[in-house]
Write a protein that binds this DNA or RNA. Sequence first.
DNA 1: ACTACGATCTACT
DNA 2: GTAGATCGTAGTG
Length: 227
Amino acid sequence: MHSARPVGLPMCPEPWPSWATDACDAALFLGDPRDVARDLLGALLVTVKDGELVGGRIVETEAYLGADDPGSHASTRGVTRRNATMYGPPAHAYVYFTYGAHHMLNMVCQPAGIAGAVLVRAIEPLLGIDVMRTRRGGRVLHEITNGPGKLAAALGLDLGDNGVPLNEGCVFVYHGPEPASGEVAVSGRVGLSSGHDLKYRYYLSGSPFVSRGRIGPVSSRRGSPEE
DNA sequence: ACTACGATCTACT
DNA sequence: GTAGATCGTAGTG
């Protein structure tokens, strides 16, 4: 049978993954962000920037809800110019800039008028690895995309990509093999000043490509900080 | 106009 | 383990 590689995309040295045969349709990105975050684990995330095709398998995500979520850009602030994309239609990229240095890639997953998105925190590099490595300053493989800021840099994303529709421009998502349920771990989100008690982070526990985020408010406390 | 701070990363102790 | 980078956003005057 013929290659599953989509027509129209640039070539890259690595072969297109045989399991990535179908682009995710917009319906996958319409639902509770916690469900979408879980469903995106294992999917293939691809970007085409500067004529280069790069990407990898999503291994870590976080869900961000609306006004009720203290960790969300939508909490207590309402619509602002920064978070407007989060209130826009689903299946679009919400890219923002933070800490004076880093871009973050989110996927909007609630109907227009309702805030909700999934932050992609880490992927396993599969396509265009040399290009991503160059964009990341020549790091070793497992440090190219193991964090939201690192991932956005490797994928070549910036504020110019805020609001682009998924699978129509430069950001694409393809269905991957569903992870075994025992492989999916859940924990508190990383780097928040509030809302870390909510277990809205999802990752593949066996993957060496997840970020090493600190979990929870206290590091000296013993016991079981996560489920 | 001015200020404080952030869904982070890196380097150095 | 922790401080510094670095700039867009939002709140205030």
